[in-house]
Amino acid sequence: MFAFIVSRILQALPVMLTVSLISFAMFAYVGDPVAIMLGQDFTEAQRQALVQQLGLDQPFFVQFATFLGNAVQGEFGLSYRLSRPVAELIAERAPATLELALCAAFIALAVGVPMGVYTGLYRHSWLSRFFLTFSLIGVSLPTFLIGILLILTFSVWLGWLPSFGRGDVARLGWWSTGFLSWSGIKALILPAITLGLFQLTLIMRLVRSEMLEVLRTDYIKFARARGLPNRMVHFGHALKNTLVPVITIAGLQLGAIIAFAIVTETVFQWPGMGLLFIQSVGAADIPVMAAYLMLIAAVFVTINLIVDLLYYAVDPRLRIGRGGGH
């Protein structure tokens, strides 16, 4: 167990290093922060001074080494755009993104699993077909279009729900939450649906196909043969067996949700990390972008690790030895 964890962490290290190199290299030349910081009027001397102060005249790898050394200590420097410590900015935005991602994941699971079970059990009912068509449309609609259409319908035409922002947030220590106020909850609805819809259809189809698979197994046939009621067979045996892959995928998709939040946050002006990232791209704010990408990489690596451990805990075959065919 311990060796397994250690080996996984060792495998994660090169990933982190690559991501940090890429994230730094990625934006090193895209925009010129100097031009943005100087504004409309400045002299050449002022420009040179700033270039030197920011260390932008150093060779690439010197800049990268400096960056990496600081990053290890959780020090990403000051944002070029906002002149505030990057770590602080990201910590400020993280709750917004995480609350949004969790709500989206919750919607996806709470709606997707029952729909998947239903379509798996009653393959030929008209409702199943409707669900499947719905899921196909959901998969075929780009996220940004869904968000825009929801705003148009529920904010502009009906005026029921806010079109942007988080509403009133309450502070609990360093965490800020929108769950404690009515306006915060209302603000969460549209972005969470937008973000969750794609995952919802994914989970529904996954549950459906797993259900179909499991229902064909001898184990279920035996259960039926034993005369167990359908209800018992479906939920006690079949669903339980589909849950392992579902949980795995849902866990892995949490990372996807956080990444896709970039699009949703842009459409809804949700003040999370994704919006911070896109705004930083626009301003060529290298420290923020690099820190964000490294953070995301760290989140993925962690999620991956947890999923691996869960698998390890759930699936006894893995414990015997990881060589062999499968």
Partner: peptide
């Protein structure tokens, strides 16, 4: 490892 990274982020990178 790559499967856990959403394709959109890989593409952005």
């Amino acid at each position: 490892i790559q499967l856990t990274f959403p394709s959109i982020l890989v593409a952005l990178l």
